[in-house]
Amino acid sequence: MEGIWFTEKQLPGLAVSCLVKKTLHHEKSEYQDVKVVETDTFGTMLLLDNVIQTNVRDEFIYHEMISFPALNTHPNPENVLVIGGGDGGTIREVAKHPRVKKATLVEIDGVVVEVSKKYLPTIAAGLEDPKVEVKIDDGIKHVKDNKNTYDVILVDSTDPIGPAVGLFAKEFYTDVFNALKEDGIFVAQTASPVFNGEMIKRIHKDLGEIFPVKDLYVATIPTYPGGYWCFTMGSKKHSPREVAKESIAAPNTRYYSPDVHFGALALPPFVEELVK
């Protein structure tokens, strides 16, 4: 795959293409097809089963937005779990937060971790942070086995296919609730409000039956389907809408800020309809 166009078929009637200058790595792990390519527009890009996961040009948007809204909503997020996210971008942002003391990454596919360290060093840099512990394990099992442990849990998963299917199930959200401490917060990426509305409705309904506080916020991420993405939060106590603006930490961020924290919660009417 060199000097040709890679095309990801995002939906039955939608595809996105990138000009690939060079294939840097390709192997089949136990769980998925793992590929790293050098693209003309987005730089180095990680593909899993030929689906774009992250790239060096716009990764900061996703990784900051899955992390900081919850970290700043919780008054003292000392112990944080990231499920998935083997590229290291989310755990990198978590480790930057001044009140985080320990960050655990549980990734099912060790190949993703090793490949990211080698070919995506700016994204994977956080994997070597002294706050971070990396476990190659099943995240679904991990939350079942660790009750009342974490202040914040972030689910940085692929789409709900293959090994990630269980990460979008109500049973998993219940186990996440139980793995959180009494004022814990959970966030998951929940795809496109333009193309995945029914899934978002179902997730929001499920979380409403488990968590006292639930919310949804959005960000613009160019390489994901439609370029408009949402994240869903479940909280035992704290609301992202009630955070004191002066308390928000945004260390060396490029997208997230105190203003963006609240702006991301201002939903267009068609998105509000999904979560009523």
Rank of each mutant, 00 (worst) to 15 (best):
Y228Q: 03
A250P: 06
G3F: 03
L167G: 02
L24N: 11
V94W: 09
G110L: 07
E273W: 02
Y150S: 07
K118R: 12
K117R: 15
V218L: 14
F168K: 09
V82W: 03
K9T: 12
K276T: 05
G85P: 00
D138C: 07
M199N: 09
G234Y: 00
L81K: 00
K102N: 14
G162C: 05
Q189Y: 05
I185P: 10
P98M: 06
V94P: 06
P222V: 13
E273A: 14
G88Q: 09
K118V: 05
H63R: 04
N252W: 08
D159C: 06
K144Q: 15
I83K: 06
I83V: 15
G234D: 01
R99H: 14
I153F: 05
S29W: 08
M45H: 06
D129Y: 04
R99T: 02
D156G: 12
H204T: 11
K181D: 09
K101S: 13
Q10F: 01
P160H: 06
K181N: 13
D58K: 08
I161F: 11
L216D: 02
I221F: 04
F6S: 10
T122Y: 13
E2Y: 05
Y228E: 07
T7M: 10
K28W: 04
K22N: 12
H25K: 08
P75S: 10
E2N: 14
G84P: 05
F60C: 04
S257H: 02
P69K: 00
Q10R: 09
Y173H: 13
L180I: 00
K101R: 15
V271Y: 03
H261F: 01
G13I: 02
K181Y: 08
I136G: 10
G126A: 10
E114K: 14
G88L: 13
T73K: 04
G166T: 10
F186N: 10
W5E: 11
R254K: 15
K170G: 03
A124K: 07
L207G: 08
D259K: 01
L47I: 10
G126T: 02
L180H: 02
